[in-house]
Design a protein around this nucleic acid. Sequence first.
DNA 1: CGGCTGATGATCT
DNA 2: GATCATCAGCCGG
Length: 197
Amino acid sequence: MRHLSRQELPQDSVTLARYLIGKTLVRELPRGRRLTGRIVETEAYLPGDAACHAYVGPTPRNRALFMAHGHAYVYFIYGNHFMLNVSSESEGVGAGVLLRAVEPLEGVELMQKHRGSTRLRELTSGPGKLAQAFKIDMNLYGQDYCTAGPLWLAEALQPVGRIGRSRRIGINKNAQRLLRFYEKGNPFVSGPRALRG
DNA sequence: CGGCTGATGATCT
DNA sequence: GATCATCAGCCGG
């Protein structure tokens, strides 16, 4: 499997969010164990977007959003869940793409163990579930997705279906903007039925 | 199936 | 003290 280079990764947030659909998320764990998933749902958070965590300017929490595109921004929310993002735009500009869902490929048994569930549909169909299945936490903060390491992005392994576009899920500010992308009809896409077709 | 709600902690006011 | 890019469990149809 081939890494995506920073050069081939789009810098523009919206372009990146759409581009990532169908690509492969790779998580390397100790003892040579590997988890992989096919990205099927993303959301873009833009410069100047009140819903973006970088909107308030750089802070210790959001600094990874200001890194060059292709670095991991991880945060903890609702006292329970980690969210995994890919930084976008150029260095110094705060923006990113939230990875909301993947289709499990390699390591399904280990994902089941991390999630405490054997139900395939429930393993990675949402940002919190995906992070738990892939053992994502603050240790991965700022990781480069374009180099060898515990977390990286690889090329698509299968053709990509039709890509849908909708409003983002779970936010109030700028809620009307069409910045969510997903593979139409994929059973691992999260959200209400109306936002999955 | 859809709708509702409590849990739980970091961050900011 | 409020907010928050969520989830599981419970309830009703």
